[in-house]
Write a protein that binds this DNA or RNA. Structure first.
Lengths: 220, 220
DNA sequence: TCCGATTTGTTGTAAATCCAACGGACTAAA
DNA sequence: TTTAGTCCGTTGGATTTACAACAAATCGGA
């Protein structure tokens, strides 16, 4: 009985893999589990990137030092999610980021080469694992492309319109909600919150957009 | 003898696959080759994304319509390279982009499910194919992350410093070249060329950076 | 060498953005 | 009800950027 089977079976990496198959698979993969105290490093910038991390409990922070030495938090990875998967899968990479435990956390690490080099006789579920990994990378790719499209817009107005029209595309003309408050939206768009607020006000006054809190609707 | 074996064996998707293995592999994958006239569509926005494309000859353009209906070119894919791979691998995706032949072009398409669902008895090289696909996605991921970090900087100065210090990291203090001219660099950073030129001049006058054409060096 | 085309740097002005500060609306706890 | 905290919109001034136009430098043939 694996202590983390509930977390793992909900994780995208182990999607469509039955709980009973988890334990033998993990031993086949040589998965290593470690506990990290809050603030202690899991990976450091410059490390060789060979293993993908899975957060089993707690959460971790992806951080990076900029050219002037300021450390900033790029992302927080919650329980059940992966980190460093792109670097581990690309092979021969040096990590450009560091990972720290945001709280006391358990982390499982798997060597990506073990995932890729299937052992056809033993592990029938390797194939599913590879499929999942491919899907995770592909979906992240799509997310990054989408964000890049938004932040590449030159003006706050265009960033808002590109982001919001994208969110609205599933049901044009209908109200839709966004998963951000104003500050988070401003951070996502890479603009100042107050300037964004002003621009939202303009769009509303011009009759292009209506909104209340995080519910938006295009008036076209 | 496959007519495109030289192009294919140089393509990242078929890296480490011998030319003699190409033909049986392609037939096993159900690869389809079509010729497209200049400007004719290969994929249209809204299509179901199931196949990854490989440019066998010529080149293709990735385009997208923005919220106001303007079509812009996001990328040009040269001979030997892939397109739509992320959407094809993510499964159940609708394409948010269109692809047109930039010139008369031959394009091969492969159903991603055929790549993922290995046929262990027949194709020993499926494994290598999957490894390559994973690596392509992972590397693209890293590139997108890197670009996103640059473009997310608020000021032109910071965008320049983040980009250039990243390029300089391989050999700190040494001169390094960049693969862009000024206009291309400005496009990559998402800023105005002349404003960027001004900012570069400031950095030089402040003694932070020296450059000549596309050779740069940090003076730290 | 000379010419035309392209690339790069410079400048001034208009416009957009950032920044800091503040006030109102709302919420939750005391 | 009061109070403290958070979120959101607004404002004004300082800064930054875009834009357009032009000058200087560079490059590749003829």
């Amino acid at each position: 009985m694996h202590p983390y089977k509930d977390v793992l079976s909900k994780s995208a990496l182990f999607h469509n893999i039955t709980q009973s198959d988890l334990a033998p698979m993990l031993s086949c993969l040589g998965a290593q589990i470690n506990r990290y105290r809050k603030h202690s490093p899991i990976y450091l910038e410059g490390d060789a990137a060979q293993t993908v991390g899975v957060v089993l409990s707690g959460s971790v922070q992806i951080t990076k030092e900029d050219y002037s030495g300021n450390r900033s938090i790029l992302a927080v990875v919650a329980t059940g999610n992966l980190f460093a998967e792109a670097y581990a899968c690309a092979g021969e990479q040096v990590l450009p980021i560091s990972v720290f435990a945001a709280e006391d956390s358990d982390v499982m690490r798997i060597d990506c080469r073990k995932i890729i080099d299937t052992c056809p006789s033993v592990c029938a579920f390797h194939k599913q694992l590879i499929r999942n990994l491919l899907q995770i990378l592909a979906e992240k790719n799509i997310l990054l492309n989408r964000k890049l499209e938004v932040v590449s817009q030159r003006t706050t107005r265009d960033k808002l319109l590109v982001y919001l029209s994208g969110e609205s595309k599933k049901a044009p003309g209908q109200p839709f909600s966004i998963p951000f408050n104003r500050q988070e939206l401003a951070d996502y768009l890479g603009v100042d919150r107050s300037a964004m607020s002003t621009e939202l006000g303009k769009l509303k006054r011009e009759g292009i957009l209506d909104y209340h809190k995080n519910i938006f609707r295009f008036l076209s």
